[in-house]
Design a protein around this nucleic acid. Structure first.
Lengths: 238, 238
DNA sequence: TTGGCATGAATTGCATGCAGAGCACCAAAA
DNA sequence: TTTTGGTGCTCTGCATGCAATTCATGCCAA
């Protein structure tokens, strides 16, 4: 028998970059997914750049194994492009891909809005109304960043109210790429005003439990957002 | 002594001009995804069973590393349920999950049909017509298995004709779970006849490039299939 | 008996080693 | 000069080893 009890704590090695501090007990691969997604969305890892496993794992303070798992999951999300025996690339977001992306989001949100109109509870309607009011306040104040956050919450809440897990997961999977597009082209005051008005109409349709109307309005809203973004991207490129 | 260093892995079989398209030589993790998916769909790995990494990796003849990557991907597809620090489980398919699943598939296929009605080429329409004829022949002959295969091909082709990668990927992701439900409840002659008729109507709407009609018909068709399957599952459980 | 805690086996999660694929660079031939 | 073949290096893909976690068992006390 070993008289010396080994110390229970794992030998922590010094972590160079940000050590994923104080996160809930999830695995490193899961944290890596989130951190990498954030880095890609905000552009710290620019589109087209190679993701060399040894470099990235060192930068994240983890080993290659969980990193590889994370890269595979990000590839499913379309944020990363895997190549056999080659370094993965941060996926490029081409204009036609943005078109398809917003077509798909519109399709999913339309269906979600139709279901939500049938299934949403009064409490959820109330929460939507409060979010809408808050969002309009940010709009009035010209606060873009919080506006976007609220806007995103509202869309997510409507999808959640559809009570359909596959639809919600598909929606979440597309969200990061849409966010990339939004960040690249967040301009046009006119579109902003229009968007707020469209949100009002959607909310009213949900209150009226008008499934077809809510679906159509939301799909159109997403479609308009998409075309506006593509226009913005085109301006950006020029 | 052995002067010739032998490779540690499997002996490479001599490959003579094997078309890479048919044998893409992908990584072990990718192959593991397909093999596990097939094993789960046909029920060799029954719902609720624990997937112990060491056992599974030995059974598949691979190590735990690619197996773990495969399990993570199957979890995204909803075929496997991951639990922190516990063995993954083959996901159970509860009746309400089947309902949601077919709601989601109907939503995606409706959107796909609407887009396909606008974008489908004459050649694709022709191919659809031939597939439909072949499927009807199997129906007339009472050949269930090839009928199902053709049926799937038709649905996949319609989605492909929408020219929308995210929609197609979402559709594919849901396919395996739907297949599980189908295999559990493939009965009801009456529903079979009805389904063939519905396919005819969908095809006609596509020919007429009636986007709304094609979308509605296809969504209803998938919805009917879902309710029939749930009824079948209920019979099965009883 | 029963509740609580320690202990050990089983298994996951992560790190790391190693072989091979792919690429760059260079030399030699055309 | 262009092309072809070789050579070395880098990086991926996979296997394996080790620590940490979880669960089951058993012991002790109430």
């Amino acid at each position: 028998m070993d008289p010396v009890r080994r110390p229970r704590g794992r030998p922590r090695k010094p972590v160079l970059l940000e050590p994923a501090a104080l996160s809930p007990r999830r695995g490193l691969h899961d944290q890596a997914v989130e951190r990498l997604r954030a880095l890609i969305v905000v552009g710290t890892l620019p589109a087209g750049s190679a993701l060399v496993e040894t470099e990235l794992s060192a930068a994240l303070g983890i080993s290659r194994t969980p990193l590889r798992e994370a890269l595979k999951l990000l590839a499913v999300e379309g944020l990363v492009e895997l190549r056999p025996n080659r370094s993965p690339l941060v996926a490029e977001l081409r204009p036609d891909a943005v078109t398809e992306l917003f077509e798909a989001i519109a399709a999913i949100e339309r269906a979600a809005a139709e279901l939500a109109a049938l299934r949403i509870t009064p409490a959820e309607l109330d929460r939507l109304r409060r979010l809408q009011a808050e969002m309009e306040a940010h709009h009035a104040a010209g606060a873009l960043a919080p506006y976007f956050a609220l806007n995103q919450q509202i869309h997510a809440l409507i999808v959640a109210c559809a009570r359909n897990a596959p639809l919600r997961e598909a929606h979440e999977a597309l969200h990061a790429r849409a966010e990339i597009a939004r960040r690249r082209a967040l301009d046009s005051r006119a579109r902003w005003d229009e968007s707020v008005a469209e949100h009002r109409a959607i909310l009213e349709a949900l209150y009226a439990r008008d499934a077809a109307g809510a679906g159509r309005l939301l799909a159109d809203h997403v479609g308009h957002t998409g075309t506006a973004l593509i226009a913005g991207l085109a301006r950006h490129a020029a």
